[in-house]
């Protein structure tokens, strides 16, 4: 279904239909922006990267073949642009914007407010900081998997590596985030809507 829509929109694009570009931006740009913002930290740069991805899609509009979904295609471009920018720009030190360690590791000490909204906002902040501190490839793999739903194979293609290496990148990224966000995630489990996502006890 997505493939049909992709093909139809790209056929319109190949006929220089600018309206199709608007449809594509509306459909994909919000997700791509979330990905780029989490990757680049600078919101303006994130917007620039996403626009650049659509510029490239427009330029490639007559060469495009439905070998991958447009979502995969666009996320691949954005991933590469983000990784290149991170490499080419001397960014501020990766840890500069992180909260102090104790703050992230023991949220309970500093967050007496039990309100879930506040807790989830704080989790968001802590998560953003921990994502920013991940090695770029681990972060990219994690976001491509969880945000964009890409397969290991598609992530491997975007990162110029193998599916096996992607599995290992994901495993390391998750282990690290689980460790760093243990307090937050347990709290989230307690407060979660879905009991299955809570704390399953041994069933046998």
């Amino acid at each position: 279904m997505a493939a049909d829509r992709d093909t139809e929109l790209m056929e319109r694009l190949a006929r220089d239909d600018e309206g199709a570009l608007d449809v594509l931006v509306a459909a994909f740009a919000p997700g791509l922006l979330r990905f780029a913002r989490r990757t680049l930290a600078d919101p303006e740069e994130a917007e620039d990267v996403v626009q650049e991805a659509f510029v490239r899609l427009w330029r490639a509009r007559r060469r495009w073949r439905p070998t991958a979904t447009l979502s995969t295609y666009l996320h691949t471009i954005v991933t590469r642009l983000c990784l290149n920018r991170r490499r080419s720009l001397l960014r501020r030190p990766a840890h500069g914007s992180l909260p102090a360690d104790d703050e992230a590791a023991h949220p309970g000490d500093r967050a007496p407010d039990p309100e879930r909204l506040a807790a989830s906002a704080q989790l968001g902040t802590a998560l953003a900081a921990e994502l920013a501190a991940l090695p770029p490839n681990q972060r990219a793999a994690l976001l491509l998997r969880h945000e964009a739903g890409l397969s290991y194979q598609a992530i491997a293609a975007a990162l110029d590596t193998t599916a096996g290496a992607v599995e290992s990148l994901l495993s390391r990224a998750r282990a690290r985030l689980r460790g760093r966000l243990a307090g937050w995630l347990a709290q989230g489990c307690d407060a979660g809507h879905d009991p299955r996502a809570g704390k399953p006890r041994n069933r046998g």
């Binding site: 919000p30 979330r34 994690l142 976001l143 945000e147 998750r174 966000l181 989230g188 489990c189 996502a197």
Partner: peptide, 15 residues
């Protein structure tokens, strides 16, 4: 459970 909790945390809404 840990996988799901992390997945939910990562599932920030699109702005």
């Amino acid at each position: 459970a840990a996988y799901r909790a992390l997945g939910e945390a990562l599932a920030a809404p699109e702005a």
